[in-house]
Design a protein around this nucleic acid. Sequence first.
DNA 1: GTGTGGTACGAGGCTTTGTCAACC
DNA 2: AGGTTGACTTTGCCTCGTACCACA
Length: 935
Amino acid sequence: MSNEAVDKLVRRVKGRGSSGKKKQDNRLQCDSAATGENGLKSNGKQVVDARVTWNDLDARGLAQDPAANDTREVEGGGFQTTFQESDQEMDDIDWEDGSSSILGHVKNHPGDGIREVTIEFSESPDSAKRKPIRRATAEEKGLAELVHKVHLLCLLARGRIIDHACDDPLIQASLLSILPAHLSNTLGDPKLHAKALSPLAHWFHNNFHVASSVSEKRSFHSALSCALETREGTLEELAALSVALFRALKLTTRFVSILDVASIKPDADKYESLSQGTSKMHRGIFNTSTLMVDRPKEVFIPPKSLSCNEKKNVAETSSKTSCKSKDNCSRSKKIQSNDSPPAVELKDKMVDTFPCEAQNNTSEECVTKKSQGSKRKGDLEFEMQLQMAMSATAVATQSNKELDVKESSNSSDVSSPFKRIRKIANEESSSQGISTALGSRKIGSPLYWAEVYCSGENLTGKWVHVDAVHDIVDGEQKVEAAADACKTSLRYVVAFAGLGAKDVTRRYCMKWYKIASQRVNSLWWDAVLAPLRELESGATGGMAHLEKPHADASNEHENVIASGLSDLPMPNELPSNVDLPKESGRKNDVESSGRNSFAATRNTIEDMELQTRALTEPLPTNQQAYKNHLLYAIEKWLTKCQILHPKGPILGFCSGHPVYPRACVQTLRTKERWLREGLQVKVKELPAKVVKQSGKLKKVQFSEDDDYGETDSGVVELYGMWQLEPLQLPHAVNGIVPKNERGQVDVWSEKCLPPGTVHLRLPRVFYVAKRLEIDYAPAMVGFEFRNGRSVPVFDGIVVCNEFKDAILEAYAEEEERRDAEEKKRNEAQAISRWYQLLSSIITRQRLNNSYGNGLLPQMPSNVQNTNNQPDVHVGSTQPPGHQKDAKDRKLNAPSMTLTDDHEHVFLVEDQSFDEETSTRTKRCHCGFSVQVEEL
DNA sequence: GTGTGGTACGAGGCTTTGTCAACC
DNA sequence: AGGTTGACTTTGCCTCGTACCACA
């Protein structure tokens, strides 16, 4: 390729607009290659093996019609000529973006090595390294939110079931019966202090143990009884027992649970698991720490030799199990191959049994899930249940040994979260930290505990956190750290009592900014909780007197989901005036009424406390937390249209940036935008902020300003609320409507109407104003985006008040006239069409008579043949000259084949006239009739 | 190993005031 | 000749959320 040709190419590339950036790249690469620089760039970028070799002929050929390649012959200097000739052509060609691999190694003339040009595409190592980012679509986000909400509702229902079980009188009585007398006596003081609860918690901790032998699975209620009997149970059961105990001792107690709900963000679990590696691995919604479904009763009992303790622990800590275990994978495969008919039969029954097995299988599954891409939680749930069923059957034949091996193989992976929790525990171990008495394996995320109302705490009383299982009293500050260590988010902490529920997350979560985005829309959540809150406040001493059916101790629920939930009265089913609540029922009426009045205050006080916490959140330590913080802000993270006004007070500093209250953040808008709100900028106010104009507008402005050289446009002036006053538009004077520069009035709202004018939103009203020569302005009410651009939408006109009536009156007349005209037009059209129809019928009949040899003519669709007496509806007001024809002409209907040669005669005395429909019916003695509409 | 700050980038929201040719 | 109609083409910036990287 000659230098001249190359220069030409370069010139053309330079001259080309920015629209062809990629084209430039291609061509420049070509240039450098052609001039012998061979394109080995020394910019440190990795040269990948995407080498394209083609001769200069093909270089052209590729850019032109490939079919032409065969016919073209280029030899020696001939190329240059052809190149020049095709210069213009190349300009017109749209270069395709193509991958280098497609080009491959192109060589039309293998022997022609001289003309070979080698281009090596360099590729940034970054681009190869960076994984393609697939972001969730709006639909996926919506679905995730839906799952989140449903899961929340399920967990709320679960909490109510547990709360209901805690009220069981038999369980409470049993607990009291095993409680040493001296402990029950310690609560004699009417002013209860948190300290007084410590011996109780200690006793409970010593007498009840987490998850020893796994008993048969059953409803929660019976599981609770069983746990009480054996003094061993799951964390959930033990926490519930502790609540029952406190309630038995007539302490106002709530059952508190962290609702460990499926993430509100799509694939959050996946990302979490990928980043965290261990905890929270791929838990489906039915495999979270909080079990939602009670285990069916009719499940098989696992082999006694099985290390149930460990199994249970794994189940409780749920997510702590690693999913990396190779043993799991191999074993699961084995299990799958053992899918025998009994296993299939049991599938339905085995739901939610053997959580630990499920966990392991899920773990295995999650590995495959990664490769399969994202699956919905519902699918996972189904698969998990299937796997659980299979594995539960198969595991019965598994040896205990195998499980132990598995456990030990897992232990290395499992260790890290436990290390973390141990670290936390050590930090706090001086007094009451997370108890390690049960051994490190038994430490899991705090998911359940009790809240006991201690009237002796503070001045006003206080809900005291009591985790009797871990022997922790008043440890609300430790919950967040412990949950953090186990990667459990404190998104929702809900206290249950009296079949109601109350969100008490604020009491336990100090870093609200971390969970705020993970919580569901507060409006929805508040609406869901509203009836439950009423119940809760009623039970813990609120104003409402609500009845709750006592659990029948003998009535063990066979299926809690089916019967248990239906047993629980929903808030709106409860009579509001029936007085037999659990709490108050235990005391006499006088006491109860007195307590209620106090408790109403108690509830309010708690609300205030939670509100106070919400407003006094500690300052976050990282900058980015201030980006959307509800309470605090730093200037750095304000958006383009925000400003601090007033700039103070400074609440603290974060990384050297002063922290201001969020209340100081004001939204700024342009003058025009404020106009839409019916506000205008005060005179002599300087813009609060000046920001760069968007490129699009700038472009327009620059093109306008080009003639004038330099311009200071390209900026947008923004004003704040404090710089505004109510809009004062010019008054309408002398019947003239004040208009904007476009000769119209922007009617964003009523506030935008100039005083003395009115907006008439009527179609075609401007004709009237025009005809009456009244001044008006088209009312622009908004924009719509059409064909890639915004188009103003007009609706009606703006006129001065004094003309309103005149215009409306004229408009009514005009519309009446219009209607009449339209009616007339329609009628004329109808007549014309009837005439055409009848003419064609007649013509057809005549032709048929003349040439059809008596063949049956086709029946026109408008002619009705009923009982061989066709009625033809004929318009009688034919155009002059035609009417007679139409009347006099023979109207041989199809049935006339029966009455050949008959000519209808419509005698006047045989006619009838219907006043209502203006229809005249004419009859021939043969039975033929014709209906004529007289207009 | 973990947390933090900075950067890059996709998704979604907000923005917003014609032209020309054929036809009647 | 002048008015009406319909086709044309499918913005582009900003914010938010978050993945990723470097660094402490």
